[in-house]
Computed example of a mutant assay.
Amino acid sequence: MERRTVLRAAVVGAGTAAFSGALWQQAFGAVAQPGPGPYGTLLAADVNGIQLPTGFASRVIARSGQRVPGTSYTWHWAPDGGACFPSGTGWIYVSNSEIPIFGGAGAVRFNADGSVASAYRILSGTNVNCAGGATPWGTWLSCEEVPLGRVFETWPDGSRSGEERTRMGRFTHEAAACDPDRRVVYLTEDEDDGCFYRFIPDTWGDLRTGQVQVLCGPSDPVTGPVTWRDIPDRDGFPIATRHQVAAARHFDGGEGCWYDRGVCYFTTKGDNRVWAYDAVHEVLDLAYDAAQVPGGNAPLTGVDNITGAGSGDLFVAEDGGNMEINVITPDGVVAPFLRILGQGESEITGPAFSPDGSRLYFSSQRGTSGADVGSGGITYEVRGPFRR
């Protein structure tokens, strides 16, 4: 199979204006490699300890254990996965809390000018809420990263209490990404032999019932055609979901997940890879592999949360590494976009763009404290001339 030909056809079929998704794969012809990024070199650190390209500026939005400025809401510890949602003339940024027992998620609502309007809790009483994903109908899927973990559907405006969606499977959940074209939700699993799943709801927009399937295929070769098979017991007990289907493909520590026009990208931290699942032709490929960077000079390691811009650029956050967010461009270049200094014991989490694409939100889960419980978490905003 000529996978580049297949992917090229998929992109062209989407229209020449949709230069994102799989375009970089057919243009570059291999996994992304280091090169000059679209935003130039990083400047000296700003007052917040963040190195950014020319034209960009950062500000602190919230700190764990402290009230969000201008509100009475105390920001949660260990901020993790996040997403942005339009709200009136402004927008809302939601953020999970990756702490045991209390977990849950919080939100910050912004006015049209970017000022903070309010902050509040949208999910409580859950356990180690790591990443998740936004739905096309405007809800946030908050995922528990524990054995037999659950998915909770939440409402960013706080108008409804979060609701359990156990039919989406019980396992060590990490991230979720909705594919409105095939009407499925992709799910990653944070185990060193984890799987990649999809949930097919009986009715699109209603996640209360449906079928969980697991991606199947050989581990060698790494890339190629794949299939999907039903999980016999989505509750994962006594046999874990990842061990129920013999043909299931296993991945080393599933992390972030992002869908963009026919391709679902997901990351695996254990082997520093960004995968590209071509959902149109059911082909698995690699977008980035640190081991394939010559000379051992991989700019992106500890790959974790991932998000995308309208330009087709992927933004991948590091858990460790150099505490960077790297950009992978549609023409197959990977380069640092920002770097946080003095927080080497932390990890970058929850990257998400505002609805207009002009602002990027993310957190340093433990900040300068390095505490495992995330008491020093800091949530940031970066504003500037992003490609859209």
Rank of each mutant, 00 (worst) to 15 (best):
D233A: 06
S115A: 03
V303I: 03
L215W: 10
W75V: 12
R261A: 15
E2K: 01
R234A: 04
T5C: 05
M1R: 04
R183L: 10
A83S: 12
A112K: 04
E2W: 01
V31R: 08
V274L: 06
S358M: 01
G296I: 07
Y186A: 08
G236P: 00
P221M: 14
P79T: 05
S87G: 07
G88F: 10
Q343H: 07
I328P: 05
G296T: 08
Q66F: 14
A119H: 13
A78D: 11
V293C: 06
P201N: 10
L7N: 13
G370D: 06
L7P: 09
A176G: 02
G88K: 11
S354I: 01
Q211M: 09
S142Y: 02
A298C: 04
E282C: 14
L314A: 05
G149Y: 00
G308S: 14
R359V: 01
G169A: 06
A105P: 04
R383V: 00
V316H: 03
I378E: 09
R183I: 08
P225Q: 09
G344E: 11
G310V: 02
G114D: 02
Y265H: 08
Q244E: 02
M323L: 13
N127Y: 03
G158L: 01
R165K: 11
E98C: 04
S95N: 06
I92W: 03
I378S: 12
S72L: 10
D113E: 07
R8N: 14
D285Y: 10
C130L: 05
T267K: 06
A57W: 03
C216K: 14
F337R: 08
F266V: 12
P330V: 08
L300Y: 01
G320H: 14
G357Q: 02
V214S: 11
A32S: 15
L286I: 11
S115W: 01
P351I: 01
F315N: 09
C257R: 08
Q244T: 06
N127M: 05
H281R: 15
G253T: 11
G132C: 08
G384K: 07
A112G: 08
F337V: 07
I200H: 10
D252N: 15
C195T: 14
V151K: 03
R8A: 10
P36C: 10
T301C: 09
E145R: 00
A27C: 12
D278G: 02
E145Y: 06
C264G: 04
W275Y: 14
V6H: 15
G295V: 13
H250M: 08
H281K: 15
F171Y: 15
T5W: 13
M168W: 04
V60C: 03
A44T: 10
Q365P: 02
A22P: 12
G224V: 15
G270W: 10
W77G: 15
W77C: 13
A78I: 07
G114I: 00
L215K: 10
G210Y: 02
G15F: 15
T41R: 04
N305C: 09
G35E: 09
E282D: 15
W155D: 14
W275C: 05
G104D: 07
A291E: 04
Q26E: 09
R234M: 03
P100W: 07
Q66M: 12
